[in-house]
Structures are given as structure tokens and as C-alpha cells.
Design a protein around this nucleic acid. Structure first.
Lengths: 333, 333
DNA sequence: TATTTATGAGTAAACGTTTACGCAATTATA
DNA sequence: TATAATTGCGTAAACGTTTACTCATAAATA
């Protein structure tokens, strides 16, 4: 039998209500008795029954986090950011990994909803219409992180359009005119479209017409990167490639090595994401780094300050982190 | 206001108790009315209030998972295994990332305990005495995965001693006699000790005396791997090295490349863990692979079958996965 | 000093679900 | 057919916490 508020009340000669007020720091109470009660609670090893509290209050401080199980390696960074702030504001994170199986998704979401959850944050997830409907009906605060969904749902991400233009600028400033975009995920249609448009517009801004064949690959996977060179054949029709995710860029880098290409002189590579994975390759990848940790922090603080009503789309900054995989292309200069 | 069991009862002309019995599939009820009630519940969009249920039953189906925030990349695989089985048996996983900050650890554990949790699984975590005491006192089922702790706490892991002997056998069978062990973590003293002993005994079994200088590095980090060659200097006094974690092996591989060594001819490397990280290096790492997913599955099934009382230590098998980083050392043959 | 205001704490109901117990109605057994 | 066993369901209490009210007492104000 665990210690309850009642036990403390008895020992302190108070009513449970008073103890509750003291322990939750709500309502009126005398500070001297409060000190006594808090000490008692501690010495008796009291541990609040959160289920009872949630039931009574008809809500919890839980934020449900949905993370794709085919693990995007930046999810950790987002979670880290969220954890920092959650701890600060007294929220609990209920992290759940979900896969593409719809019935399992539904069960997962229902189990979250059955706990009077405060909000559901989706990390780089696109969900099926059935789950989407369930979530919309549930009235909990939704937020998509690192991915933009339906415009009804607020999101925090990099500005994918601007990011892509920055990348193109960077490559063009290094003399590249023939640029490929590897990995335009069909799984995240809105993001993919924004990036494609940024790619096209970025090239156009430099008077370069874009070759639709140079946008290739539909999954954000190592495999996509690995197959790139085989797909295009040697010699490559482009001098630089953009990997849409670090893992793609690594695959591309490896396939280039396997084909005895000299990186970056035979092919320049720039990677989107910039997680620590890019630091453990040889040569170290040049990347545009997204600020995932900040996305996580903003997710919590924006929820805390209840600002999702004002701003539907929040962007975090990106920055180019030079590595050793982009060379100057003298041929076209 | 959400639909409750009472609403269903009213509409069905039953008492809440009957509805509860039907929906939880406990006690006695008529199957025809059950069908009616289940349909009603579905059509009314009923969602169980799990807090109320937990409160009433004085327990939950939640399993708390503690994961180190400096992310060990195999945690995902363990969680994947757990998730499969948890889903099957109707458990919920409450995954929490913890860092080394003790006060935060305590808060995290308390927040878990305040939810009538069923068990706490620790993934590759060594905890401070204060947290340890808290857990022991709490009476919840504890389990350490991929790490052995105090003998009171059951664990699921590879047999680190046997694993290390297997590695030594493998290297010796490839002609290596001078072997280094890189990364003997002070953070996981029991595992580290078992591995050291396996290393020493493994060498002794082949009549090779061991050189204490060849056990080097105290953190399981990329940095440790990266600094190895600088530490020992060239030419290396050993022909093969064991990386105690994939990330160490990658660091070692990179530092070897940076020093213009030819892997595997100048140095053979074998990595412990064998996560997918080892597949994205060039050359691909030879590894001894731990079955993390199985560890996760066993964690859940063993809990489900309540078998922790019988067996305190459960081992999963390891297997050597040849890559391209171990060569035959002809010199010593 | 008389009146108002503030303070501290108790009472009791509520949150939604589960479950021990009891009782009628039905079915099985002798 | 009389009795026993089974079935289906309702009653009511319980889980631990919170909170709207209420009320006495103390402090502040006029």
C-alpha cells in the first residue's frame, strides 16, 4: 500500500484537501504548515498517484510524441531539445515509435488519446487519412515537426524552399551548373514539392535551366544514395549532387568510392540535415545543417505559451557547414 | 465532454458495470448484448479513460523504458523488438531519455513510478546509487538490457565474456597475435570487466600472453577511436584491434585512413555491436553482431510470462559478420 | 470598538472505471 | 417436479486527487 495524501493528512492533523492544496501549490494555506507537510510527505516517501490526479483534473501534462520507427537519425536531436524544455515546464513526454502499419498506428494514437493527453507532436511523419481523421476529431493540439502537413496543422521546420535556394546558390558560387537532386521523397509530398521548387527557382535565379532527369530517387534511404551512380552511369552528367538526407549522401559517397571517383573533384556532394553522421565519413560531408534541437525546444515553448493559434508555420534557421565534399568546378567558370 | 461508459450504459439500457465487464472482457455477460454494446461503443466514438482504469485497478500496463540520451545507436533496435511484443500483449511503452544529471534522473524515475508502472527497463544504463535506491524501494520489476548491473537486477544481454573469447579466436585464426582492445568503458564496469577477462583468457587459450597496454580507452565514443592511432604511434605495436562499439571502430577506421594506413592490411579491425552503422563505412566493418532486437523481444515476453524470478541473467547469441576489415596476418604464421 | 476583509482549513462531491457481492431468472440435474 | 447450479446483470463502494463552497477566526480598516 503506497502512501496517500490521506495518510499525510492524518499524520499532520489536516484534511486531505489542505494537503493537496499545499502539495500542488494551489489555493490558500499557511506557509508554516506547508513546510511541515512537505517535510512529512518527503519523509514518508509519498509519491503522487498521477492517474488519480489526471482523472480528477480531466487532463494530464503528457505530450505524446510520434516518431517513425524506420529511424530518422535526427529524431534524437529533436527529442533532446524537447526534453530540455519539457523538464523545465513540467511536461512529460510520451514517446511512441510508429511504423507504417495503419491499424497499429490507430491503436497507438488511441492509447495516447485515452490518457487525456495535452498535445501530439509528430516527428517527420506523414500519416494515413484514417489516423489523421482520428487526430483531428480528438481536439488535442497537434504539431508537425520537421515536416509540413495539411495547412490546418501547425508545423515547425526549416524553410525548405529557402534552404534549397541557399544550397543551389552555394553550389553555383562554386562553379557548378549541372546539379542533381537525389531523393525527393514521395512520403513527404509537401516538403518534397517545396524543395523541388526551391531547386528549380534557385537554378533559374542564376539563369540555369533545370533538367528534370536530375531530380531522382523517391526514398530517403541509404539505398537511394547507393544506386545513384549506377542509375546515371559514368561519366556523370552533373558535377554536383544534393543528398536530401545525410544517409542518402553517405550512400552516394560510398557508391562514388566504389566507382573509384575522386570526391570532391569528380563529384561534389552536399548533404541536407547535417547530423553528426556527416562528421564520421571520409571525406567529411559538406552539409546544410538544420537546427533540430531548436525545433524541439520551440515545440514545447510554443505549446507552453499557447501560441499555435497565432502562428501556424514556424521556421528555424539553416546554415551551411563546409566539409570536404564540395570542390570548385573550374571547367564551367 | 467525452463519451463515458455511463453514456453507453444508458443508451444500452444497462448498468455501467455490465458495460465495463463487456468492454474489458472480464466476468460474466451475455454474448448478444456484448455485441450490441461493442457496436454502440464504436459508433459513439467511445475512448476509455485510461487514468480512471489505472486508478481503479491500482496498476497500469505501462512499461517504462529508460534510454541514455547520449544516444547509443542500438537502442532503436532494442526498442523495435520491444514494440513488436508490447503491441502483441497489450503493453504500453513509456520511453524516457535520461542524461547523467542525477536530479533529473530522480525526477524522471519518480514521474514513471507515479503512474503505477508495471516495470522499468534500462537500456545500457548505469545509474547513480540514489536512483538505484529509489528503484529498489519501489518494488517495480526492474530489468537491465544490454548491460549487467548489480546481481539483484535481472538482465538481458550478450554473454560478454564468451563474445570476447569468440572475437579473439577469430582474430587468432587469422594469424593475429598482437591484438588491442579499444574502449573498456568505466561507465559499465561489470560488462567491461567481463570483456577484459574474456580478452585475457581468450588470448591465454592460444598461449598468447596479454599486454596490459593494449587495453586502452575508457569511453565508448567516436573520439576514443579517433585518438587511438595517435596514442599508440606508428608503426602500431599490434596488428589487429577490437573496437568496443561500432562508433569506436568507425573512429579508429577514420584515424587509420587519416594516417594513410591500409585497412585491413596494415591493421585489422573488428567491431563489437554490428549495427547498421557498420555497413555504411568503407571498407565495410567486420563485426560481431549482437541481437538487440531479440533482447527487446525477450524483455517483454519474459516479463509477460513472469519469468524473471527464475532466471536472473538471460543471454542472447552473437555472431561474427565478416566485412572487409580483417585480413590474414601472414607475418606471424 | 464595530465592521469589513483576508486567511486557513474543512466538507463533500466529482472524475471514470472496476469489482466484490447479491439476487433474480434460467437451465441443468436428480 | 424439486432442488441445485449457472447465467446475466445491477448495486454500491472503491481507487487517490482536486476543487467549489463554506465557515470560523484573525487581521485590517473605519
Amino acid at each position: 500500500m503506497a502512501i496517500t495524501i490521506k495518510d499525510i493528512a492524518n499524520k499532520a492533523g489536516l484534511s486531505p484537501a489542505s494537503v493537496s492544496r499545499i502539495l500542488t501549490n494551489r489555493g490558500r494555506f499557511n506557509e508554516d504548515t506547508a513546510i511541515r507537510v512537505r517535510e512529512l510527505a518527503h519523509s514518508m516517501g509519498y509519491l503522487k498517484n498521477q492517474s488519480a490526479a489526471d482523472l480528477s483534473q480531466q487532463k494530464s501534462r503528457i505530450i505524446g510524441i510520434l516518431v517513425p520507427i524506420e529511424h530518422t537519425n535526427f529524431a534524437d536531436e529533436i527529442i533532446k531539445g524537447m526534453q530540455n524544455k519539457a523538464h523545465e515546464f513540467g511536461y512529460e513526454l510520451l514517446i511512441t515509435f510508429i511504423d507504417v502499419n495503419e491499424s497499429q498506428q490507430i491503436q497507438t494514437v488511441q492509447s495516447l488519446l485515452s490518457r487525456q493527453i495535452l498535445a501530439i507532436f509528430m516527428l517527420a511523419i506523414d500519416m494515413s487519412p484514417a489516423v489523421f481523421k482520428l487526430l483531428i476529431n480528438s481536439k488535442v493540439q497537434l504539431l508537425s515537426i520537421s515536416n509540413q502537413l495539411d495547412s490546418q496543422i501547425p508545423s515547425i521546420s526549416s524553410d525548405n524552399y529557402v534552404m534549397m535556394k541557399k544550397i543551389v546558390d552555394y553550389l553555383v558560387s562554386h562553379g557548378h551548373k549541372k546539379i542533381a537532386l537525389i531523393g525527393s521523397s514521395s512520403q513527404f509530398p509537401i516538403v518534397a514539392q517545396l524543395r523541388r521548387q526551391g531547386f528549380i527557382d534557385g537554378l533559374a535565379a542564376h539563369g540555369i535551366s533545370y533538367n528534370p532527369d536530375f531530380i531522382w530517387g523517391t526514398t530517403l534511404s541509404y539505398q537511394t544514395g547507393l544506386e545513384t551512380i549506377k542509375h546515371f552511369g559514368l561519366p556523370l552528367p552533373f558535377t554536383a549532387a544534393i543528398g536530401s538526407a545525410d544517409i542518402i549522401s553517405i550512400g552516394l559517397l560510398n557508391s562514388a568510392k566504389d566507382a573509384n571517383l575522386d570526391i570532391p573533384n569528380d563529384l561534389s556532394i552536399i548533404s541536407i540535415d547535417g547530423t553528426e553522421l556527416t562528421q564520421i565519413t571520409r571525406p567529411v560531408l559538406t552539409t546544410i545543417q538544420q537546427n533540430f534541437q531548436l525545433m524541439g525546444e520551440l515545440a514545447i515553448t510554443t505549446l507552453h505559451e499557447n501560441k499555435f493559434t497565432e502562428e501556424k508555420v514556424i521556421f528555424t534557421k539553416t546554415k551551411i557547414v563546409p566539409g570536404k565534399t564540395v570542390a570548385i568546378n573550374y571547367e564551367s567558370i
